[in-house]
């Protein structure tokens, strides 16, 4: 058995949760979740940020008291003036590491201030990784669509470069980002007068095919997979390949329990099979996949290790 020592990273919340739910979630993570790093901040839509922005400082303080390393997330698609300003301001503070999800931020990134690269930046090969590491990236969460063979090759190169490589290990997978808001469109609204209808769907709005097959999940300007990535059964081969970090993406329900399952399997307190069974009972509605890494397509059924 490979040494399953992984850094566990809690990715930024992808959904529009009410401020109180946001506060309660990060309080529970701070106090109880066995994760090492917590990436916090608005990833998907800048219109959501004002609802909870004033709650972030207290959340960060509590997370740090709970022993977590806090990292600030950038927006995924920066177009508006205020979004550019917010992106710039992320690098004006030096107290916390920044996670770049739009390359606009490379303008202000400095080699002497280590930063990380999020899964929405296109790192498909060792040359791109080397470029980003030379510019100061210390950790890269790879794009979820990469097949395992690419992950192996990139991880091999990362060793010499001194960068940690993370993979998307749990949660609905970000598939696309757009200028258009599909949540608004599904409610016959425009993005500018969206009435924040995305708040109605704490895990995204499930989107079915004409035949009723669950396929995607709409999340404002973002489109996610319907299925949840779940690599709990693949930790040995990830560890053997040299992956050192796992990203768990927040969902509603008892997410602390999800993080505990990953920590338990990593520490070999329970078997991967038992871990999978526990994750299935925590989220009975979730349909799991490891298809991008190990199957012939992203939506492939969960394939046993």
């Amino acid at each position: 058995m490979a040494d399953r020592t992984f850094t566990l990273t809690l990715g930024p919340l992808q959904f529009n949760w009410p401020a109180q739910k946001f506060v309660d979630f990060y309080a529970a993570v701070a106090d109880e979740a066995p994760v090492d790093r917590v990436v916090i901040g608005e990833l998907v839509c800048s219109k959501r940020a004002p609802f909870y922005a004033d709650r972030i400082p207290a959340a960060i303080e509590r997370l740090e008291r709970g022993g977590k390393k806090v990292v600030l997330a950038s927006l995924a698609l920066v177009t508006l003036e205020r979004e550019r300003r917010a992106a710039r301001e992320l690098f004006q503070q030096t107290e916390h590491e920044v996670e770049i999800n739009d390359l606009a931020l490379m303008n202000w990134a400095r080699e002497e201030t280590p930063f990380s690269i999020g899964p929405l930046v296109n790192v498909y090969n060792e040359a791109t990784l080397a470029f980003l590491v030379r510019r100061g990236a210390r950790r890269v969460c790879l794009p979820p669509e990469l097949p395992f063979a690419s992950v192996e090759t990139i991880v091999k190169a990362s060793g010499d470069l001194g960068a940690a490589i993370e993979v998307w290990a749990y949660g609905r997978i970000p598939l696309a980002i757009s200028g258009r808001c599909y949540h608004a469109r599904a409610h016959s609204l425009s993005k500018d007068s969206c009435q924040f209808v995305c708040e109605k769907d704490p895990d995204g709005l499930p989107t079915k095919t004409l035949e009723g097959v669950e396929f995607l999940a709409v999340n404002g300007v973002q489109t996610l997979s319907y299925k949840y990535a779940n690599l709990i059964g693949d930790l040995d081969r990830l560890a053997e390949a040299g992956v050192t970090s796992l990203r768990l993406s927040p969902h509603s329900g008892d997410f602390v329990a999800v993080t505990k399952v990953f920590a338990d399997v990593c520490a070999s307190r329970i078997s991967p099979q038992e871990g999978l069974a526990r994750l299935a009972s925590e989220s009975p509605e979730a349909d799991f996949t490891n298809g991008f890494l190990f199957g012939d397509r992203g939506a492939a059924p969960l394939a046993p290790s």
């Binding site: 698609l77 598939l175 696309a176 980002i177 298809g291 397509r297």
Partner: peptide, 17 residues
């Protein structure tokens, strides 16, 4: 309709992106 180069819908359904 998606931001170009940042869309994996096709590989989610077919494996080809």
């Amino acid at each position: 309709v998606m931001t170009e180069g940042r869309c994996s819908l096709s590989s989610y359904a077919t494996g080809k992106s």
